[in-house]
Design a binder for these strands. Structure first.
Length: 290
DNA sequence: CATACGTGGTC
DNA sequence: TGACCAAGTAT
């Protein structure tokens, strides 16, 4: 993947106009977007992100709301523990960082829900730092364009970041934009299925293309089951609570799933996770909503 | 390192 | 139609 200029100019021409890419978007806006975008498509995140930033423009505002309100506002973005962790992170940012999202990667890594990807994404996209930002898109683009493979193998954070670090342009702001461009390329052109190689700005230098686009030969990726899993049951239970205005009876939750054993196990795990609380009278509610 | 963790769109 | 996929993190 040589010729950073080609990718950068392609990004200038075709990048989506996403609200968290506005130069005036705060670090908080960027952080909220990155958390929401973890395993969740842009199209589903954008409207919720707008609601959140309008309602909670700074971390302290979110921290002042109850966990239940936050989980409710998370809606059906999925993986609702993210909402709880973001709420907790907002409290730390408000209390210990002057209500400003930290720019230091190690400080960011210390916050709940922020891992190797998100910490660097915030450092790069909110603060213009030069650091490798490696998500699934970037891993796939590098696997193809640099290594000539059909797809990325299993994640190996240290090696993946070293791969990307070699590609980054020297200047901080340019490197940050380059990372965004790499992600955009993976999201729109160099996609997992049916990549649009004819529209690719780095077609001429892509190692995968030059090798004749060989099929992926690495280990088979585990398929994620959903139907019938605890994840589905937890989702159903939480959906009942989101749809209610206050605490509900165990009987109301019974309607969410027929098999009692699994239902009870999932309800217990939601209580353990803090996504559900039990009232003194034995009812169930979103945290803080009783 | 593998697995659990939501939800909905696409081919 | 059902498998695959979507800007990962925590354990």
């Amino acid at each position: 993947m040589p010729a950073a200029d080609v990718l950068l100019s392609w990004f200038d021409r075709t990048a989506r106009d996403l609200p968290w890419r506005d130069p005036d978007c705060s670090g908080w806006g960027v952080l909220v977007s990155e958390i929401m975008l973890q395993q969740t498509p842009v199209s589903r995140v954008e409207p919720i992100w707008r609601e959140w930033l309008a309602r909670w423009p700074v971390p302290s505002a979110l921290a002042a709301s109850s966990q239940g309100e936050v989980v409710r506002a998370w809606g059906k973005l999925g993986y609702p523990r993210r909402a709880l962790r973001l709420h907790e992170a907002a409290g730390v940012i408000a209390a210990e960082h002057g209500d400003v999202v930290p720019a230091d990667i190690d400080t960011l890594l210390g916050l709940p829900g922020i891992g190797a990807y998100t910490a660097r994404a915030v450092a790069a996209f909110a603060y213009g730092q030069r650091c490798p930002v490696v998500d699934t898109n970037v891993r796939r683009v590098v696997a193809r364009a640099v290594h000539g493979a059909g797809d990325a193998g299993p994640p190996a954070t240290t090696r993946d970041m070293a791969d990307v670090a070699k590609l980054l342009p020297e200047q901080d702001a340019v490197a940050a934009k380059y990372s965004a461009a790499l992600m955009e390329l993976g999201a729109l052109v160099c996609t997992a299925r049916n990549p649009q190689c004819a529209d690719c700005p780095v077609y001429d230098t892509c190692a995968w293309q030059l090798a004749g686009r060989p099929a992926y030969t690495g280990p088979v990726k585990a398929v994620q089951k959903f139907a019938g899993t605890d994840r589905q049951v937890r989702g159903r239970l939480l959906d009942v609570l989101r749809g209610a205005t206050g605490p509900v009876t165990r009987g109301q939750l019974d309607a969410a799933w027929s098999e009692a054993g699994q239902r009870d196990r999932c309800l217990d795990s939601l209580l353990v996770d803090g996504l559900v609380e039990q009232t003194d009278s034995g009812l169930f509610a979103l945290p803080g909503e009783h």
